[in-house]
Design a protein around this nucleic acid. Structure first.
Length: 439
RNA sequence: GCCCCGAUAGUGUAGCGGCCGAUCAUUCAGGCCUGUCGAGCCUGGGACUCGGGUUCAAAUCCCGGUCGGGGCGCCA
């Protein structure tokens, strides 16, 4: 139907050279402002809007454009006319148009209406929600975060890997696994690439990272939990201590924040965000030191217990007052960490483990891994796991496994914090939670 | 899983025993308007989550269901 039309011109490529000439454009009809003898139509493309002006002296066919429903996709041909009164500096006087896809009425969610919408309504109609520039900006940021992490990790000699997401055993026990049918055998969606990352440490492909979904069937209804999330994982071998892992991770985060300033200034401005790039190294706060800081805030954390949500927030606030919105908590009690975390030789109550905190929430956790198979098996048994279920994993430790460490970093959570959103779901195109599988 | 809160036109809300024949905005329909850009103005249409109960009377109070929001635990 448009076979004889010239190619559609994007808004950003229409310039002074086009003034007085005919162009073809297409987009969503955002708004029609009909003043009677003159009507202004706002056509929206991915990069912005342009104005189409229809006057009463134009043909009835062209004037019918003002009757097309909002958010319909229309194509039109017309003359670019310079006009200082228009924000873009030009308007288009249409000569012909076609409705390529008519929008039904009324819209289930207004794109430019001056009323709000509940998150549920927005997610139910995500395709319309995403027509809003500020909603899309979050995903531009997210894309840039991925680019920055890939760039940084590559520069540090890491290889991007892709481990399976359908697996036979989980890293953290069974309660949070999604079960699936795998050719009539039970299988699970991967809650973490943990075991596979570690197997790779025995291969020489031993400085790796991955950006991939992880699945957790946690019964958590919070603004920071989601059943399917994007995890930025890394694992590195031949380390002498956890410190080498921390340096890569803090470097990656600092690099990413700087990258956003350089490459996403438009989105940062649109979302009114002011990002600070932290100086590295960022503070390493030991678990015991964190307890002392919290005691000073009037919060008692029983020795050996994990920091609860309130304690974590309070610690974040205390650190923020000292100018640190990014910091590590290190050396957690061994008892609250998974079997693969290395216990400190000189102080077995504590472990070579860490969390990365950003703006009051946990972004990552990691540590040095236990690479001695007998110790892993002992820890597994203590945690009620059967080493027999993990033989595919343990086998990689029986024939030469270098010392190694790594982390898992929640990419959606990071974007959630960076973009200053109220709910991590807003940082995910089509979030999956306990109550939502559609769309 | 536990706790708290909520559910009113397409959307976002006000009302919280009789004044509700339900408010306002937006949207939708129709009309006026030749420089709008959150266009303006006029007219009109459109809703009390479901099931029980209390009461002379229920959008409003009670019980249960469903759905949603937030918090906790846990975590990325």
């Amino acid at each position: 139907m448009l076979g004889d039309w010239p190619p559609f011109r994007p808004l950003s490529e229409i310039g002074e050279a086009d003034h007085g000439k005919e162009v073809a454009v297409a987009g969503w009809l955002e708004d029609v402002r009909d003043l009677g003898g003159i009507a202004f139509l706002i056509l929206r493309q991915r990069e912005g809007t342009l104005q189409v002006t229809v006057k009463s002296d134009q043909s009835a066919e062209v004037r019918a454009l003002t009757g097309v429903s909002r958010e319909s996709v229309v194509a039109l041909r017309g003359t670019v006319q310079a006009n200082e009164k228009v924000r873009n500096g030009f308007e288009i006087i249409p000569e012909a148009y076609e409705v390529l896809s008519e929008a039904a009425k009324p819209l289930p969610l207004g794109v430019v209406d001056k009323v709000g919408a509940a998150m549920d309504t927005r997610l139910d109609n995500r395709f319309l929600d995403l027509r809003k520039e500020e909603v899309r900006a979050v995903f531009h940021l997210k894309s840039h975060v991925g680019s920055a992490l890939r760039e940084y990790m590559t520069s540090k000699g890491f290889v991007e890997t892709h481990t399976p997401k359908v697996i036979s055993a989980g890293a953290e026990g069974g309660a949070t696994l999604f079960r699936v049918d795998y050719f009539e055998k039970p299988a699970y969606l991967a809650q973490s690439p943990q075991l596979y990352k570690q197997i790779l440490m025995a291969t020489g492909l031993d400085r790796i990272y991955e950006l991939a979904p992880a699945f957790r069937a946690e019964l958590s209804d919070t603004v920071r939990h989601i059943a399917e999330f994007l995890s930025f994982d890394a694992e590195m071998a031949y380390i002498r201590s956890q410190e080498e892992v921390l340096q890569v991770l803090e470097g990656a985060v600092a690099y990413t924040l700087a990258f956003l300033q350089d490459h996403a200034s438009e989105q940062l401005a649109l979302l009114n965000l002011d990002l600070a790039v932290p100086d590295v190294p960022v503070p390493r706060v030991t678990y015991q030191r964190a307890r002392e800081v919290l005691a000073g805030e009037g919060i008692e954390v029983p020795d050996g217990e994990d920091l609860d949500t309130g304690a974590e927030k309070a610690l974040g606030e205390a650190m923020a007052r000292e100018g640190h919105d990014l910091f590590f908590v290190v050396e957690y009690p061994s008892a609250i960490k998974p079997f693969y975390i290395m216990v400190k030789d000189d102080d077995p109550e504590f472990s070579h483990s860490f969390d990365l905190e950003y703006r009051g929430d946990e972004m990552a956790s990691g540590g040095q891994r236990e690479h001695r198979v007998d110790r892993i098996e002992t820890r597994m048994r203590r945690q009620g796991l059967d080493p027999g279920d993990f033989e595919f994993y343990l086998k990689a430790f029986r024939y030469g496994m270098p010392p190694h460490g790594g982390w898992g970093f929640g990419l959606d959570r990071f974007v959630w914090k960076v973009a200053g959103l109220g709910n991590v779901r807003e940082a995910i195109l089509f979030p999956r939670d306990r109550g939502r599988l559609i769309p």
